[in-house]
Design a protein around this nucleic acid. Sequence first.
DNA 1: CGTCGGATTGAGAACGTTCAAGGGGCGTGG
DNA 2: CCACGCCCCTTGAACGTTCTCAATCCGACG
Lengths: 232, 232
Amino acid sequence: MQLAATARSASPANVLPFPIPGFGRAQAMLNPLVGRTLHFQRGAEIYPAGKAADQLYQVFSGTVRTCRLLPDGRRMIAQFALAGELFGLDGVGRHRFFAEAVTDAVVIAFSRRDIAAWVDRDPAAAQSWHSYTLEKLAAAQDRFILLGRRTAAERVAAFLLDLADRGKGPDGVIELPMSRYDIADFLGLTAETVSRVLTTLRKNRLVANHGTHHLRILNRDALEEQADEEAA
Amino acid sequence: MQLAATARSASPANVLPFPIPGFGRAQAMLNPLVGRTLHFQRGAEIYPAGKAADQLYQVFSGTVRTCRLLPDGRRMIAQFALAGELFGLDGVGRHRFFAEAVTDAVVIAFSRRDIAAWVDRDPAAAQSWHSYTLEKLAAAQDRFILLGRRTAAERVAAFLLDLADRGKGPDGVIELPMSRYDIADFLGLTAETVSRVLTTLRKNRLVANHGTHHLRILNRDALEEQADEEAA
DNA sequence: CGTCGGATTGAGAACGTTCAAGGGGCGTGG
DNA sequence: CCACGCCCCTTGAACGTTCTCAATCCGACG
């Protein structure tokens, strides 16, 4: 929140990528670059599908989703970008997804041309940038398993653990800025199924609710067991 | 097949990446590098999950799959690599999937260190290499939609169209080197469901079978309509 | 305190899976 | 060259998980 205030005071001047605790590689990656600060209201479109993919975005505050719609209304969310995280890396020439603000959000836009130029100059940057995309590729392949071979309960448990690791909230409290519909479209389920799984988790005392958009993990081991019907 | 004979005669000497018609970018990418030729029998393991990811592979002949197993036996296939295509780009430090030969296969292994060194030297190579990984990332995100939001019939139709585009067979004849179980584990279905969808496609005269591992597309428009319940 | 969007809960249906049996193709051995 | 056997593919029937449809509930916000 203090961060958001800082962004607002810096706007509309250009800003450097801001430091976020625990935001290692991507931070180092973008540090020498200058971006434009943009503000979006909850639900606002950040870029449409098909737009030239000439920018990369970092979330300053709030949460962003990247989505695609099928003509019959089915929707898939490819990514939730939390504060500090990057998005906009869908498609090579043009965006294949559209991006929207899940909550009111402040976003820093970097020119892909600047990134390319800087990567050409600095071999360490090139290395950092390349291993970032490789990491995303590996994460995407992990998601194949989630979407193709896991049950609803496993998907939701994995999602909660992922958010717990990425969110920097204190002692096991997870913030869920997105709706049950968003979660469902991210996991390939329906909102009703997500709700039912969360209810079961609460009844089994694996998690406790603090309003609809916050929950606390009570038994992480059991949650991990439910998420990973898988040996490491 | 002539290609395979050439590979055999070149082995065990080192070889350059070979040209494959219609294999543009990755070809240009690897041209200056030298790799080792490896032979695998149908079903043989090419690398295990967890192995240090210090090589990148190009399929010379045959087909390769990259998979992960859950402890209860569920399996997911992340990729089928056909002749000319690359595989081994799962995981940054270590492979997160294992690779197996779907059919007898000849594979060329390139050292990632060689690739890194060459990319450091040649900016055009770096560009080519980077946009290759970005393209793979975009393709992975498309697969999220397939796995999370499409029906069995849509998945199978999309799979056939994809193979038709990648395989260089004549006039709409598709080769399916993999089993129905492989297809199922690639699409997040069961072999029975894949078989039933293929039967329906045959009955509706969208495709014709020529043995279990070859089929011909009779009505591509209808197949595309079935695959894309989606506007471009 | 009222209203509205999202969340929860319930009942029934559907799609895909599971379990089971039968059929076909290919390779091997006689 | 033919027969056998194995593997995989196909088909059927029953089951189950998840979806769909619908009603109610809750919480945020005016």
